[in-house]
């Protein structure tokens, strides 16, 4: 089972707190994006392991982009 981290709004990736292979828990801060000059954290939606990351720091992202994929145990 896999679940995606979806961008809830457009912005720029300021900080990436996850790496492939990381074990994460629901509500961990996965990344921080900057939109309208404000930092907004994006949270992990479920417990699991990071399978894939599609962005790096500095990337511009659009709303609903798939930012990362989490493998659920």
């Amino acid at each position: 089972m896999a679940q995606e981290i979806i961008a809830p709004l457009a912005g720029k990736v300021l900080q990436l707190n996850i790496a492939v292979g990381d074990k994460v828990e629901e509500d961990d801060e996965a990344l921080v994006i900057e939109a309208m000059k404000m930092e907004t954290p994006i949270y992990v939606p479920c417990d699991g392991t990071i399978k894939q990351i599609n962005v790096k720091e500095g990337d511009e992202i659009e709303e609903e982009d798939v930012l990362a994929i989490i493998g659920k145990e």
């Binding site: 809830p8 709004l9 457009a10 939109a35 309208m36 404000m38 907004t40 949270y43 709303e63």
Partner: peptide, 16 residues
């Protein structure tokens, strides 16, 4: 608005 919303539910993104 976004910040007050996020205080009530941190996964609610009202900014846009």
């Amino acid at each position: 608005v976004h910040k007050v919303g996020a205080q009530a539910d941190k996964k609610n993104y009202l900014l846009m």
